[in-house]
Design a protein around this nucleic acid. Structure first.
Length: 296
DNA sequence: ACCCAGGCGGGCG
DNA sequence: CGCCCGCATGGG
C-alpha cells in the first residue's frame, strides 16, 4: 500500500524527527530505506511492509502510516517509535549539562526505537569490530539469502529479515559467504541458541537485569551488545551501551580526557541520568559521531 | 597501499 | 579479576 492508495493512519507527534531517528544507526537503519524527498521510512516488520511519512516540524508534526495490514502497522509504529514517550519529560530528565543540551538542541525529536529482539541481536552481533555501512551490507546479504519471501508494496517479491530458525539450519560457510567473516560462528550459534534454548520474545516484559543476564548467555554477545539489545530490542532505558564512541566522548566531556574503564563510565551514567540513561546514551553517541569536535 | 570500524572470547599474569 | 591479543572484510 502506498499513499496514493486509499487508506492511511495519522498520528499527531510532538518532539519527533523521523530523519534523525532513522539515521542515528539504530537497528531500523539496517533493513529499511529512507527517502529524504518525501521524509518517508519504508521497513519490513512481521512480513509486512510499512510506510511512515513524517510531516511538519520536530516540535509539532504528523505521521502518516500506510500498510496493507493496518491493525498490525498501527501497533508496530506506536511501539517501534516509542510514541508514548513524553520527550519533554525525558529531555528535562537528561539535560544535566551543556553537552547533552547541545545534543538535544541539534537532534530534537530523535527517538530510540524498539525493534524485534532477534533482529536486534543479530544486527549487534554483526556490529562488533565493524562499521555501519558494512553491517548494512551484511544484513542485506543475509536477508537475500535466508530471509522469508514477501511482497513489497508494489506486489513484487522481496526478502524479509532472516529468522533465527532459518539461520540455525544454515551452515557456517553459507553464513560466511555473506561477508560476516569471523562473526559467522557467532551468528550460527546465536541463531541455534535462540531457536532451541532461549525464546527472546518471552523476555518481553521482564526486567532489565533479567534480560541482560539471559542475553549474556548467547555466544558472541558481551556487555555492550547485551545493553544494545536491552535498549533497542526491549526498550529498557536503564541500559547504557558503551562503545568506542561513547567511551571517548564521555571521557572527554566528563573525565577531563582521562582513560576510564567501561564499567566506570556506565556507573557514572547510571548515577547521572538514572532510569533514562539509555536516551542520554543515544544523544551522546550520535552527537559525538556527527560532530568533528569529538573525532578520535 | 594502508587504516579502521557501535567488541568479543580466550589466554595470560 | 584486569589486560592484551587476534580477528575477516570492504570502504575511505
Amino acid at each position: 500500500m502506498r499513499y496514493d492508495d486509499v487508506g492511511f493512519t495519522k498520528f499527531d507527534v510532538r518532539d519527533f524527527n523521523l530523519r534523525h531517528t532513522f539515521e542515528s544507526a539504530q537497528p531500523l537503519t539496517f533493513h529499511a530505506d529512507f527517502d529524504e524527498g518525501s521524509n518517508t521510512v519504508t521497513y519490513e516488520s512481521g512480513h509486512n511492509i510499512i510506510n511512515v511519512r513524517h510531516e511538519g516540524s520536530a516540535e509539532d508534526g504528523r505521521l502518516y502510516v500506510a500498510c496493507s495490514n493496518m491493525p498490525y502497522a498501527k501497533n508496530d509504529v506506536v511501539t517501534r517509535f516509542r510514541l508514548h514517550d513524553d520527550m519533554r519529560k525525558i529531555y528535562r530528565g537528561i539535560n544535566t549539562d551543556s553537552f547533552i543540551g547541545t545534543a538535544i538542541r541539534k537532534y530534537r525529536g530523535m527517538r530510540l526505537t524498539v525493534n524485534d529482539p532477534w533482529e536486534t541481536t543479530l544486527v549487534f552481533i554483526l556490529s562488533q569490530f565493524n562499521n555501519v555501512k558494512r553491517i548494512r551490507l551484511i544484513t542485506k546479504r543475509l536477508s537475500e539469502r535466508f530471509g522469508p519471501e514477501i511482497k513489497d508494496d508494489y506486489g513484487r517479491p522481496m526478502r524479509g529479515f532472516p529468522s533465527s530458525s532459518a539461520l540455525a539450519s544454515a551452515t557456517e560457510d553459507e553464513i560466511w559467504d555473506c561477508g560476516t567473516g569471523f562473526r559467522a560462528r557467532y551468528v550460527r550459534s546465536a541463531a541455534q541458541y535462540c531457536n532451541n534454548n532461549l525464546d527472546l520474545n518471552s523476555l518481553k516484559g521482564k526486567g532489565y537485569d533479567r534480560i541482560k543476564s539471559e542475553l549474556l548467555q548467547i555466544d558472541g554477545v558481551g556487555e555492550k551488545v547485551a545493553d544494545c539489545i536491552a535498549l533497542m530490542g526491549y526498550g529498557k532505558l536503564e541500559a547504557f551501551p558503551v562503545d568506542t564512541w561513547v567511551k571517548r566522548v564521555m571521557e572527554r566531556v566528563y573525565f577531563k580526557d582521562r582513560e576510564k574503564r567501561i564499567r566506570e563510565i556506565r556507573e557514572f551514567a547510571e548515577e547521572r541520568w538514572g532510569k533514562l540513561c539509555g536516551y542520554a546514551q543515544q544523544y551522546a553517541f550520535w552527537h559525538g559521531r556527527e560532530s568533528d569536535e569529538f573525532l578520535p
